[in-house]
């Protein structure tokens, strides 16, 4: 098991390297010039050249790449072209909001979707099942921004329960932090609730017709325990898989949600950095995201062994 984890971690190195090369190349091969953007509209070509030299952009691409890579390997992601800060300062400052939003979204999604899906499967064909499945179709088809604005209109503007926009840091207390995140997290979670509930239902339907469910009933087990102790653990592997995919998609999705709700997270930083052609920041964020993807995959694979002892690595 330990050797499996070590091997998987070792395998992330080439993945990250390929990501690094691709990101680096793609940014350098786009026609835009960060130096020109920094210098502004009225700059002379000498000024632009000077800025370019200062940023190291006048060097051959290969030299630029290895200089950057060498620094990254020693833990230095360089300085932002645009903001007068190091990349690490910028990024580390933005991790908390993004992480909070993603985590809370996933907690909502799992806590609501898994029981809903399980009950829908248990009561297959009844009203409850149809309501859950109907909601799931709705969740898939209504765009995130519509849900977002409706929730803001009802709960923030009319009822005034939550702030319309903005983010309170965890340091300012759990209450305000939670209050600032509930609407965006609910908004974001709708589609994942739909996805996970559907998967849970399908997976549970398969499991509920298995022989060991009948055995559990033959022992005199209560229906609730049959459902949640015997069936759910067996149904877990496909559910965990979609949760993993969900988290990966979610990280891409925060870029939009953070803009809608004005949350100063990595999503916003990404948008700003891309607009400013702030190469070092973009590179660092993409590296960070791909590392997260790889780790999520690893965690999902490892969790299989917890839910199903027949799977061994």
């Amino acid at each position: 098991m330990i050797s499996y984890i070590l091997r998987r971690l070792a395998a992330t190195i080439p993945v990250m390297l390929i990501v690094a090369v691709l990101v680096f190349l793609m940014l350098r091969l786009t026609p835009s010039d960060p130096a020109a953007i920094i210098a502004g509209d009225n700059a002379t070509s000498e000024q632009i050249l000077a800025i370019r030299a200062k940023l190291g952009l006048d060097q051959p691409i290969v030299t630029q790449f290895f200089t950057w890579l060498g620094r990254v390997l020693s833990g230095d992601f360089g300085n932002s072209f645009f903001f007068k800060k190091t990349v690490w300062e910028l990024v580390s400052n933005r991790i908390e909001p993004t992480l909070s939003l993603s985590a809370l979204t996933m907690v909502f999604a799992i806590a609501i979707a898994v029981p809903l899906g399980a009950i829908a499967a248990y009561r297959q064909g009844t009203l409850i099942d149809r309501v859950v499945m109907g909601f799931s179709v709705l969740g898939f088809s209504v765009p995130v921004f519509v849900i977002g604005y409706v929730l803001v209109y009802v709960f923030a503007i009319n009822l005034g329960w939550f702030p319309v926009q903005g983010y309170q840091r965890l340091a300012s207390g759990i209450g305000p932090w939670l209050q600032s995140l509930i609407l965006p997290a609910v908004t974001l979670s709708v589609i994942y609730i739909a996805l996970i509930a559907r998967m849970t239902r399908t997976s549970m339907l398969d499991v509920l017709s298995e022989d060991y469910i009948r055995t559990a009933r033959a022992k005199g087990q209560t229906e609730a325990k049959v459902l949640f102790r015997h069936a759910l653990k067996n149904a877990a592997v496909p559910i965990v898989t979609v949760v993993g995919i969900g988290i990966a998609l979610l990280i891409g999705g925060v870029v939009v949600t953070e803009s809608v709700y004005s949350i100063p997270g990595l999503g916003r930083l990404t948008v700003d950095a891309v607009l400013a052609r702030d190469f070092p920041v973009i590179q660092a964020i993409i590296l960070l995201f791909s590392l997260v993807y790889v780790l999520i995959n690893l965690i999902v694979d490892l969790s299989y062994t917890i839910f199903d002892p027949r799977i061994r690595h």
């Binding site: 022989d211 060991y212 055995t215 015997h230 653990k233 067996n234 839910f307 199903d308 002892p309 027949r310």
Partner: peptide, 10 residues
Amino acid sequence: EPMTALNPVL
């Protein structure tokens, strides 16, 4: 079939 009648994850 005892293979399927027992819960595989317990």
